[in-house]
């Protein structure tokens, strides 16, 4: 097994200087993916719940979705997709030895992440303003199906939003690591792993957007 891991280090990294330091980039990346699988199952469970309730309350889900603004959801989709691109570019820049470029792309990724949260904030506060929130006056008087729709909407986009916040923390941590010279063109896998997490956040939004906003 250790022999196997060693060959993989040679195959998968640009590490040519770390002859004596034990480093398993392959295992590191595999560990990240295993964690991402648990995330997929976590959100997968919520999507199953969505499917079940959507079948039961189909017309009410359409009614609820009409309250959401498509353009805001679409804008957030574009913001997240773009942040995914800048994330990849940050990794590519680092692999190519362009540390300044990598830092710049990483900062823009964090910027887009904040952009996503700001749009989400306006979206939620607009709903809150109209009393459409968990326990909100207006929502309590709506039919059961619409309540369920917004219950799912808030829990799923909320959990996703939490992931965005964690992602910002993770990317900021990576930014500091690059600035400190701990993550380098020869040792870029930590940045790749942080990138994997960020892409997962994007991936989940790709499904959340049509399921909640495009229900007409």
């Amino acid at each position: 097994m250790s022999n196997n891991a060693n060959t993989h280090i040679l195959e998968h990294t640009d590490s040519h200087s770390s002859g004596h330091v034990h480093r398993d980039d392959y295992g590191s990346k595999m560990g990240m993916w295993l964690f991402l699988f648990t995330e997929l199952l976590l959100f997968g469970g919520l999507f199953v719940l969505y499917m079940a309730y959507r079948t039961e309350y189909f017309t009410f889900f359409q009614l609820g979705a009409k309250e959401l603004k498509i353009w805001m959801g679409a804008l957030n989709t574009i913001v997240l997709l773009t942040s995914s691109l800048t994330m990849v570019l940050s990794i590519v820049a680092l692999q190519r030895g362009n540390i300044k470029g990598s830092i710049a792309w990483l900062i823009s990724t964090i910027g887009f992440a904040f952009g996503f949260l700001i749009i989400k904030y306006f979206e939620w506060s607009d709903k809150f303003h109209h009393g459409i929130m968990p326990g909100g006056e207006e929502l309590l008087n709506m039919p059961q199906g619409v309540k369920v729709f917004f219950g799912l909407y808030y829990s799923m986009t909320g959990l996703h939003g939490l992931h965005v916040i964690i992602g910002i923390g993770l990317l900021t941590f990576m930014l500091i690591r690059i600035l400190l010279g701990k993550v380098t063109p020869d040792k870029f896998v930590p940045l790749e792993n942080a990138g994997l997490y960020w892409h997962l956040v994007d991936l989940i939004w790709i499904f959340l957007f049509p399921l909640f906003y495009l229900l007409h």
Partner: peptide, 25 residues
């Protein structure tokens, strides 16, 4: 082979490129 030190870079066959990712975006 275990002894190559600089070949590790070449083993990264899928050279990191900006263009393909912008296309995907």
């Amino acid at each position: 082979a275990e002894h190559h030190s600089n070949d590790g870079r070449i083993a990264h066959a899928h050279a990191p490129s900006y263009g393909i990712n912008i296309m995907i975006w």
